[in-house]
Nucleic acid binder design. Sequence first.
DNA 1: CATATAATTGACGTATACGTCAAGAGTCCT
DNA 2: AGGACTCTTGACGTATACGTCAATTATATG
Lengths: 137, 137
Amino acid sequence: MAQLYTVSELAEHLGVTPRALRFYETKGLVRPQRCGQRRVYTHRERGRLALILRGKRLGFSLKEIGDWLDLYDADPDQREQVQVLLERVRARRTALEAQRADLDATLAELKAIEHEALDHLGGWDRSTNKVSSSGET
Amino acid sequence: MAQLYTVSELAEHLGVTPRALRFYETKGLVRPQRCGQRRVYTHRERGRLALILRGKRLGFSLKEIGDWLDLYDADPDQREQVQVLLERVRARRTALEAQRADLDATLAELKAIEHEALDHLGGWDRSTNKVSSSGET
DNA sequence: CATATAATTGACGTATACGTCAAGAGTCCT
DNA sequence: AGGACTCTTGACGTATACGTCAATTATATG
């Protein structure tokens, strides 16, 4: 059941290098078990690494991602810490929602540019391009 | 009408340092006019810099942002280039929409963590916290 | 058992994005 | 004219996030 991975196996799966995984470990982001001196990654580490990579895609630093991960495995029995957790989660959400506003604004502008370009192509060249329905938001 | 800025003025307005603005110039992202040897920023440069900073907030490198900016001032009379433009705009949109998916997934998880935390606080402690309506998406 | 294979820990190198002096040079004020 | 500012261009320093050897070491296989 509990699938185990070597560094290079997991790195392969995640599309990164073994070096990256070891680096994240030195930064305290993951703590794989050891079999002798070899690293052994479990499902849990894989999940954490998925979160790390997503954080990176969102433009956060490894340090920020580290704080981030703490939110996922905070001890729910420490009432005092749950308060702190809550505020940090909310701060994150605020930041992320601001980021989404940036993102949506940018997407809107790109759509505008796209339509301008299509207009300038003299009508709708449906043979090679089609305008996206753009029904999101 | 056309407001002009010195480096430090504009930097102040944008919440960055003059050094950053000069750095962006060496990278070809902005090309302020000169009055003698002093830099003079216009409304146009201010707009570009706003785009640059937004790109940074979204986690893009200055090089990516540079390519990005080209999309905004491409020559619409060069049909061939408009084709290229279209594809690049669409590639950007694809990347950004993937990023938004990451973002929304993360926000959803944070909301879940937030609610768990609230539950663990033993009911709804409305005196110090209130649960967000969370009516998005 | 000898060797090929894969992993380990340093140590050093690199690209990005600036920060931080340093040494002029132009501008304004009295 | 002499400061006091502000700007200018280097030049060097720094933090982040790894890449790239190098020298071992452990494991597997013929």
